[in-house]
Design a protein around this nucleic acid. Structure first.
Lengths: 350, 350
DNA sequence: TCCAACACCTGAAACGTTTAATGTAGTACC
DNA sequence: GGTACTACATTAAACGTTTCAGGTGTTGGA
């Protein structure tokens, strides 16, 4: 056991209240006392007990963040910026990782309750409704990511998928592309459906046909398959907008296998700006959802909500930004042929 | 504020002590009382206050983990398995992310002290010596990763770099490679030096010349540079063992630019098994350090240390495993030429 | 009938802080 | 010299648990 505030008080010949005031910059300790106490604190190697502190102080200074998958490269950056901002605002942070498991989600939420967090950022697609009730009842601030309506104590972070896709389509349009398709929507996952819908809207706004949707599994294999499926389309599209980067990598693999060059013969775009997208050949034009912004905004939103006297939630748009790299180029007018036999062969291989 | 244990006690017409016993499976509450209390707990939506619990109970049930960079894909997996195991053993977990900043490292360590952790896993290359003293003084268990000696209260996790490199060299040797070099050591970083030294030892054990060391920055650019440098060697090596996957990706890029095919003309291996290594073309033969094992072992080690009566630390080897993929192939006897002029041109470009 | 043993339950003192409420000098002003 | 401040310090009551040291009632054997 380390020294307690009482040890410090005794050693400095003051009361524990004075020590507390010095440590928290509350009350008005004289500069002399202040320095003296600080010296004793240092000499004794005293660190205040966080639990006692939380227990004694009326309102805890803790925020929680629950993510669905800490191994998904999207989240660590969000966590870091959330934590950095929270700390700046004077909060502790506790982390929950659900691994997409409703059971772990429940336990994570309970943990937030047990730690009496002041607010919690929920970044999972499903949220346990009953527990959310429990949270609301305790007047704890909540932010969701792309989920549900804004209400009392509940703010929402909305990723601007539309703007991201709009920038992609505009970029390709500028390059002369007119036949573009979307690849990789997976039913049931909101964030992907939003991208697909944005694509359709952007195409229609330009008087273009959005074409068929090539479904996929959101991963590499799905991209490869979608790539080969693209080759069967007549006329062949000059650009493919992938639902995410991994699918885009798969697409490129598929095209390359078939003898098509990217971007000379066909352009490909991704979404998410994962590390992979940068080092693959060609490097992939993609959309960056500013993850640091997302984390920081979540912390700000919770702070605002929990320190307002009228805690009405609001929406926070999270911007998306086009990153142009090597996988997009001018549209080709003439179509380079892939022989029928070769294509068939390829389709069998995969 | 939610209900407290007193509310539950009043409602159930028992004492708070009884409620506590029911909740912690201590004492001997009668089954009847037990069920009744549990029902009230549920009805009231009571969750015990973690801070009060920690404060009141003699020994805290919290472990800490400090990592140098949560955005490095290595760590999230470690964190997840550490946390899963810790929770299994009945601990809470608090996380510190230092972002390689000594200042944040200090604050993270202080936070561990403030939360009265029972043990802390330190996975950063530098550790603040003074704070470590402070930790030792409080008899808190510590595990380091590849750092410092074992002592009282301090265990060490040792990644078996030697075995990993040995497997790589043996694999290449079996494929007929004899002229191999190592690429990418960066002075000062222990984990990389260990790989380089292992390489030299493995080569010598086979009576082979380890050749020059191509220094690099451990990243993509360093790999590209090392790749081009390799081309200037006479005779050209038939295989390059990269210090990590990112360097390997760079190497492949360099070779491909120069017109060499991987693995037909030259084999390349990586280390770490990052996601990128799988999707790049060709996919990279690499070494997997079992990150889940690492996290789990850290939690186990802390548990063991902190619940032993004689808390003497020990070493825990972390195995490494070769993953054979497409970037390695049989050694070529004849050397395909890269023209002098083209090479020079390439070197200027990068 | 008495006593010991047992099963179950409770009272109350911690745990280490914060924070109102209160106290006590010293100073300035009339 | 009295009054009203001001500037510091302190006392003591929370905060919500755990846990030790009993307490009470029942059972069973002598």
């Amino acid at each position: 056991m380390g020294p307690t505030i009482r040890d410090v008080a005794r050693e400095a010949k003051v009361s524990t209240a004075t020590v507390s005031h010095v440590l928290n910059n509350t009350g008005q300790p004289s500069p002399r006392t202040r320095l003296h106490v600080l010296a004793v604190v240092r000499r004794l190697g005293y660190f205040p007990n966080a639990h006692a502190r939380n227990l004694a102080s009326r309102n805890s200074r803790t925020l929680g963040i629950i993510v669905s998958d800490i191994e998904n490269p999207f989240f660590p950056e969000v966590i870091r910026s959330f934590e950095a901002r929270a700390r700046q605002l004077g909060y502790e942070v506790i982390l929950g990782d659900t691994n997409y498991d409703p059971n772990l989600m429940r336990r994570a939420t309970e943990r937030m309750l047990e730690h009496h967090v002041r607010g919690v950022a929920v970044m999972t697609s499903e949220a346990n409704l009953q527990l959310i009730q429990e949270i609301a009842r305790r007047r704890i601030a909540v932010t969701f990511l792309d989920l549900g309506p804004v209400q009392e104590y509940v703010s929402n972070l909305r990723i601007d998928y539309f703007s991201g896709i709009e920038q992609v389509v505009e970029h390709l349009f500028q390059l002369g592309h007119r036949r573009m398709i979307f690849a990789g929507e997976r039913p049931g996952l909101k964030s992907n459906i939003a991208r697909r819908e944005a694509f359709i809207a952007c195409m229609k706004a330009r008087g273009l046909d959005p074409g068929p949707n090539l479904k996929g599994d959101l991963r590499f294999a799905g991209g490869v398959a979608a790539g080969l499926a693209t080759l069967t389309l007549k006329p062949r599209p000059t650009a493919v907008v992938a639902v995410n980067d991994l699918t885009a990598v798969g697409l490129i693999k598929g095209f390359t296998q078939a003898g098509l060059r990217v971007p000379e013969d066909i352009s490909v775009t991704g979404f998410d700006k994962i590390q992979l997208a940068e080092y693959v050949t060609p490097s992939i034009t993609t959309v960056d959802i500013h993850r640091d912004w997302l984390g920081r905004t979540a912390a700000d939103a919770l702070h605002e909500l929990s320190s307002a006297d009228k805690p009405q939630g609001r929406e926070y748009p999270i911007p998306a930004e086009l990153i142009v790299r090597a996988s997009t180029g001018p549209a080709r007018s003439r179509e380079s042929k892939v022989e029928g036999r070769k294509l068939e062969e390829l389709l069998l291989t995969f």
